[in-house]
Write a protein that binds this DNA or RNA. Structure first.
Lengths: 224, 224
DNA sequence: AAGTGGTCTAGACCACTAC
DNA sequence: TAGTGGTCTAGACCACTTA
């Protein structure tokens, strides 16, 4: 009887509606006695079920079956190169633009920086077997970074992942017209594209804001 | 010294490059001795770091700092009603179509069912303060479900969440033209929209395939 | 073959919170 | 204020995997 067995047993009893949504589940001590294991084992099982959103736990109030089980999905975000190579294609990229300039207000605000902060702007096209896949625009905050390479032979993403400790960030998915990305992706400007936007924060402050427009047909797949 | 302290301490030493990417971290016993805690406490901390993708653990081989830290994001998928109500708007829905028919081959294949399986088709429009938000098409597999209600007063989603045990599923994000969803959303057919597609599997087999087209401006936000 | 992480146990103390 | 989950400990055994 490992904790996974306890987890499975409890989940079965939830699925069987023995404990319907909203119901109170017996205490850890009780379950431990029922199955002949230590309370710590039950605790671990219940912790897993809580992580997965099946139950809600509160001290003193006990453990309840989630009324509206929030479904949680986990997304692994690989480095772009790996994503391309996973399909068997050859990855390549082209640096289309690079210049230093004050970070525009909108971008600075997204990064949590004062307007006009000096920044480095990059435009990169990512290719799979020579075909455009992703058009990327990026602002970097040099003040929060070690000396920057010229990004001709390494993508900003891979350099950052390898060199700069990451503290937090957010990720936004949306859809919109290709617009400025149209030319690089060789599609019409009003073609719908999938857009990801990411802000990354390091120990010394905001690091980068990156916006990627994906070629039509791109999909993000998550397991529930 | 709780396990979160140990986690934080180890993470700091990783960030400080004391253990660079790929490096081997001291064993649990060692760390436990260093910080004066029990090995179980260290284990819990390391388990958390592994869950978060900061380290990779292998028996016998020890624990290593992740070389290319795959960034993991967790997405909580709330019931649509809650998503709307969280913005302070009033949620409502309209059932636009409902009929029984064999599930089309493409949809059946996505669900992992043989073509021509009998199904129930629903078209629903979700509204926030009376404004169209989401246009939803759905196939249900009655063979894997208890007797179905008429879905005039409950959405399929909420009924399923409350009544049918959920085993697994997947979730796909993409972008595309509004197309068939255009009329219901009151937008032009070539307007880019954000599309989510979800297959849900229950104990008795595939339950439902649902496709939701979101009104322009919709964004999915995840924390890293 | 040996060392590592994975897990279990029995007991204990504590923080939180519903009552 | 009493009961619940959250956590820690010290010790133990085991499975896995690499050397």
């Amino acid at each position: 009887m490992g904790w996974e067995d306890i987890r499975a047993a409890v989940l079965d009893r939830i699925r069987a509606r023995e404990w319907p949504p909203g119901a109170l589940i017996p205490g850890e001590e009780q379950i431990a006695a029922d199955y002949g294991v230590a309370r710590a084992t039950v605790n671990r099982a219940m912790q897993a079920l809580a992580d997965e959103g099946f139950v809600e736990r509160k001290k003193r109030a006990g453990t309840r079956v989630a009324a509206l089980p929030t479904r949680r999905a986990r997304l692994d975000i690989p480095v772009l190169r790996r994503e391309v190579e996973a399909t068997g294609a050859v990855y390549a990229f082209r640096l289309l633009a690079r210049h230093e300039a004050p970070i525009p207000d909108e971008a600075a605000m997204r990064m949590g920086l004062p307007g006009g902060t000096p920044g480095l702007y990059l435009e990169t096209l990512h290719l799979a077997d020579g075909r455009p896949q992703v058009f990327e625009t990026r602002w970097l905050n040099p003040a929060a970074l070690p000396p920057l390479p010229d990004f001709a032979t390494v993508t900003a993403n891979e350099w950052l992942v390898a060199e700069v400790p990451f503290v937090s960030g957010d990720l936004v998915f949306s859809a919109g017209p290709a617009g400025a990305a149209a030319q690089a992706l060789a599609i019409a400007p009003d073609t719908p594209v999938f857009v990801t936007e990411r802000v990354t924060v390091g120990t010394a402050g905001p690091i980068t804001l990156v916006r990627q427009s994906h070629v039509p047909g791109y999909r993000v797949v998550m397991q529930l």
